[in-house]
Write a protein that binds this DNA or RNA. Sequence first.
DNA 1: TTCTTCGTTCCGGCTGCCGGAACGTTGATT
DNA 2: AATCAACGTTCCGGCAGCCGGAACGAAGAA
Lengths: 269, 269
Amino acid sequence: MASDTLRGLERGLQVLDALNLSSGMTLRELHCNTNLPKPTLLRILATLEAHGYVRRRIADGVWRRSARLSETGSLQGLLLDVGSSILDDLCQRLRWPSDLAVYDEGSMMIIETTRKKSPYFINWTGVGYRIPMLQTGLGRAWLSFCSNEERETILSDLRGSSSPFDRAANNSQLVDQLISETRAQGYGTRVQGFTLRKIGEEKTDGFAVPVIARDRIVGCMNVTWLTSALDQRTAISRYLEEVQAAAGRIGNEIDTKLSLDAARPSALQ
Amino acid sequence: MASDTLRGLERGLQVLDALNLSSGMTLRELHCNTNLPKPTLLRILATLEAHGYVRRRIADGVWRRSARLSETGSLQGLLLDVGSSILDDLCQRLRWPSDLAVYDEGSMMIIETTRKKSPYFINWTGVGYRIPMLQTGLGRAWLSFCSNEERETILSDLRGSSSPFDRAANNSQLVDQLISETRAQGYGTRVQGFTLRKIGEEKTDGFAVPVIARDRIVGCMNVTWLTSALDQRTAISRYLEEVQAAAGRIGNEIDTKLSLDAARPSALQ
DNA sequence: TTCTTCGTTCCGGCTGCCGGAACGTTGATT
DNA sequence: AATCAACGTTCCGGCAGCCGGAACGAAGAA
């Protein structure tokens, strides 16, 4: 269970964490901060040093976190990171599964989903799966809440696409209507009865909202349910608020993490 | 000794390292990559996850390094990081101690030194200690190898300084001469007999070279010796090449690490 | 010089960890 | 529908890896 965890490793990470936010500590300071006995600390530090995670300043013997680059994490990495656990929470509350997706080369790409965890069996599509922009809630939400410049780029890409789904991008009247409607309601819905599903599976429906961080759209998330269990009006009235709250939480956490990073202690002293 | 190290922690770091450069692996892949038994991996991953170091994607159970920001490390952190071990090497070869310093607010600030490790007892000054720009090898080297813009800024700062050492900045003829001389030789020396030392300590001398990374100066390093043991001419002929090589290695390593960072794998897939 | 503080080493004892093996589940194959 | 293979998960008896108090040495402070 939750306690199936390694004490030695745990203590090592504890030391790493302590060093991370202090830019250098002596053995004594570490001892006071972590309450670990000094011989133990010495062993931990030796191990961390051997793997290049910490380094001891020769001048004064102070232990410092060594500068490992390549741990930054892109914005999308962050989105996946915080999104994952919030989607999980949401699924436990609503029971219905959600997806998290980003725009990528002419379609929405799914980067996380709780379809596996949901108790309801719903047409399973994995990470990396792509769905069209104009027929789905996720796509419509992205198009409606991204910047004007981005929308223009996307639409012109779609006009040049060979996919039958993307032809609708030529009907600018339809597109405009779609976007203003989506904006007005605050969520995107899919084309009546539209599902990319295998034969024999139940019909589903859903809606999607944007995830906003740093004042721009960074992703979209949705909820999906079986039409046999719920009609759209009921689902939206029941779940919209909660899904929007979850999207808001994702955006907030991203913003916080990014600003924490900007304010981290200087590398010296 | 070198083997006084914790196996559990070591394995945990091994897993972290594996995940770092792959952006996601299944248990099986980890098992193949690390040769650790699967139950052990499960325990390690549980521990890492509890501390927020890794996260499991719900969609497909893939383990990913979680996006921890605040581990980036400034350029100065990097300098200290790679400089530390290279200074250490150098000290083992030359026996004489070295310092690593950067320009900071009107003087050179020492950020690392091997005076502790050197077998020769030399006037001990710790991290954070400041030395003047115009009288010391470290200061002269920085002034001579920084950009023209930076030099102008520094000199005008010095002219406004209250320190008696910095008054020489007003004598522009002297300054120009100093800089062209330092540039010509490739290293900076100190004012004849200049030492900030306590009474009773032996006289020292030294020279300093710039550390260049990303095509600009990022630090200066020097060697110090007792005048009672060596005259300047001998010391320079014996050590200059080696010190310049060390400075070059520091610069190169910084450049490599920075470009490795730029080329790291995408956070998705 | 003496005293205090900090880092390092030592070693007997025990518990935290180990990993083979068995099990349950998933999804591919015929 | 049935079979099979691959993967993740759980179990548990056994032992070595780790533990940390105590003693030691070195380095400043008084």
